[in-house]
């Protein structure tokens, strides 16, 4: 139980998707102009990461890993399908996003209206695929750990995008050198935020 909580905290602050690995930067830069839209996208990412990482974990554990197919038949013990993981993970993500979109639309039209076009965009957000690939690389031991890693990464991404959106709303009133305006200053601010987040590196969990 404690291990699960540690992974959660670690994936929010220490291994933050944006500041430590630069994942999901494209939508992070494109959608962070106002706080309101970035909150919507942030929630959608938490949601999708919280679902796809555990599903991909099960897929990896019972289909892809070396010897994972033993439950079908003992003769599959030395079958290793891990080279297929890219294509299967992306297929799972694309279909999960589609499924989540349909379910949300049916049961909670209000949430659907607020997430709007962000849900389909998430299929090509690298933070989502990155979450699954890191899960595979770090070899988490149980479904609980994988889920808490997925949710934690989502929350970390949410914090990052809401933070930068709040700063960008204020920076409109500052006198930025013309050539740095817009994109340039956003990069530099993200870098500074990353340096601030590095102070969490000292925490041992």
């Amino acid at each position: 139980m404690q291990e699960i909580f540690n992974i959660f905290i670690k994936s929010i602050f220490i291994d933050n998707m944006v500041f430590a690995y630069f994942l999901g930067m494209c939508s992070y830069l494109a959608v962070s102009k106002t706080v309101k839209t970035s909150v919507g996208l942030g929630f959608a990412v938490i949601f999708v990461l919280g679902i796809t990482v555990p599903v991909d974990y099960l897929l990896n554990e019972y289909v892809l890993k070396a010897g994972a197919l033993v439950w079908v038949d003992a003769s599959f013990a030395d079958v290793d399908l891990s080279f297929l993981s890219f294509i299967l993970f992306i297929a799972i993500i694309a279909s999960m996003v589609q499924l989540v979109e349909m379910i949300v639309e049916k049961f909670s039209p209000a949430l659907y209206a607020s997430l709007g076009i962000f849900l389909p965009l998430i299929a090509v957000n690298c933070a989502i695929l990155g979450g699954s690939l890191f899960m595979q690389e770090r070899d988490y031991q149980s479904l609980g750990q994988a889920t808490s890693f997925g949710l934690g990464s989502g929350v970390g991404w949410f914090l990052a995008i809401v933070g930068i959106a709040a700063i960008r709303e204020k920076i409109r009133y500052s006198n930025v050198p013309p050539a740095l305006r817009g994109l340039g200053i956003t990069f530099i601010i993200t870098g500074l935020m990353g340096i601030a987040f590095m102070s969490f590196l000292g925490i041992k969990l």
Binding site: F19, L180, I188
Partner: peptide, 19 residues
Amino acid sequence: ILPPMALITVGVIIWVQRY
């Protein structure tokens, strides 16, 4: 070497290019 400096380097490249 640390990750945040990559962002700042790109920011500076953008600055020079747009200048």
